[in-house]
Computed example of a mutant assay.
Amino acid sequence: MRGADHHPSRRRFLDATGAMVAIGLTAGCESHADRPDGPGAAAPATPSPRPVAPAGRHQAGVTVPQPAQRNLLAVVADLGPGVAAGPLLAELGRTVLTLAAGTDARLMGLPPGDLTVTVGVGPRLVRTAGPSLPGAADLPRFSRERIPPQARGGDLLIQVCATDALLPPVAANALLDQAGDRLRERWRQSGHRGADVPVDKGRSAPRNLLGFVDGIVGPHTAEAQERHLWLAGPAPVAGGTLAVLRRMELDLPRFAALTVAEQEAVFGRRRATGNPLSGGAIASDPQLGAKTADGRYLIPADAHVRRANANAVGAGLMLRRSYSIDEPAPGLLFISFQNDIRTFTDTLTRMDSSDALLPYTTTTAGAAFLILPGFGEAKPLGSTLFR
């Protein structure tokens, strides 16, 4: 876990090796290295990811891009004493625009690619803007939590995502540099998404460290997102959403000791395909009432897909952009977006009573944030809530 200092606990450097292509100096002479398909030919360049517009009705990094970028860095921080939220957020928004445009010198010459920055404010700040606004309530405590005070809650979330693994820490550093001593970092977490598995109609989802496809169910159409994801009002928060972050350690050795059938019973899905145990394809709705000939549920009573099922909970859908992590311990950074915090709290309350997956998890950090509405040059970040 990161403390208030800004020095990473572990740094990774990517080493690049270049290949010299031999050039024939005598006209008419050709070596294997001269040929495009020869052994000395340079590897084809990786296509640059498509840029993501940072301005608009919604902030980038929630529903766009699709699929989500491979790499994420989430930084949770507090505002210093007496710091006004409005001017700070406006500065951060302007920095986001220059980072996305590639004009910020603090990018160190890196092309921005599909870089996205998503900014949210915690309950304490939301209450200063309006105590009844969505996002003003602190998260309740749940079972299987081992969260130190430094890793619970926070005033500000900066979520940075990119296909290029170098960009999130570099962009986050630029934003923290812009904030200076007005921000005090609480904790940060980097994460990576596994290989994408096709789900439905051009949509995909990654595998997690337990080997299962993660994030299959959610509000994936524009209509469903308007209903379950985006805040329609009040006016100051319209176009925003609510985010929950939970960093969870996974007991990989104990889960790996289960047979594949036992692992599938924990999730309620096939490990190889993601298909529900009740049958159908990966995108099929789990049939919770389906039984075997001798009367047993095809999806066990405590399977994760049953306990977290929105219809069974009586709650809305949450959009998940979860990332696997390897420090401070192997696990998962769970991020859910929803327009009603009860979507998350009611779901986890039901899971708390009986969910076969929870005994393999321990939550070590958690917070909730109001993801601010979209912004642009004429509408500074946070200007609908803070002066």
Rank of each mutant, 00 (worst) to 15 (best):
H6W: 10
S9D: 15
R10D: 10
R11S: 14
D15V: 15
D15R: 15
G24E: 12
L25I: 13
H32I: 15
H32T: 13
R35D: 08
A43Y: 04
P47W: 10
V52K: 03
A53W: 02
P54H: 07
T63S: 15
Q69R: 11
N71Q: 15
D78S: 04
V83Y: 04
A85H: 05
G86R: 11
P87Q: 00
P87H: 02
L88E: 01
A90R: 09
L92R: 06
L92D: 00
G93Y: 09
R94G: 13
T95C: 14
L97N: 02
A100L: 06
A100D: 02
A101R: 12
D104F: 14
A105W: 02
G109P: 13
V117R: 02
V119Q: 11
V119S: 11
G122H: 05
P123L: 00
R124Y: 05
V126W: 01
V126L: 06
R127T: 13
A129Y: 06
P131Q: 08
S132A: 15
A136E: 00
S143W: 00
R144Q: 14
E145M: 06
R146I: 07
I147T: 06
P149Y: 07
G153S: 09
L157C: 11
I158G: 00
V170D: 05
A171T: 03
A174R: 02
L176W: 01
D177R: 14
G180A: 01
D181F: 00
R184P: 10
R184I: 14
R186P: 12
S190E: 13
G194M: 05
R203Y: 11
P206E: 13
P206Y: 11
G211M: 06
G211N: 09
V213K: 09
T221V: 00
E223H: 03
A224C: 05
E226Q: 15
E226W: 09
H228M: 04
A232N: 10
P234V: 08
V237S: 01
G239I: 00
T241I: 04
V244P: 00
L250K: 10
L250V: 12
Q263G: 10
E264Q: 10
A272G: 04
L277M: 10
S278P: 10
A281H: 14
D285K: 13
T292D: 05
A293M: 07
Y297F: 14
L298M: 09
A315W: 00
A315M: 01
M318V: 08
R320A: 03
I325R: 02
I325D: 03
E327F: 15
P328C: 01
F334Q: 11
F344V: 01
F344G: 00
D346T: 07
R350F: 07
M351G: 02
D352H: 04
L357N: 08
T363K: 01
T364A: 07
L372V: 04
P373Y: 06
K379E: 15
K379F: 14
L381C: 05
L385K: 08
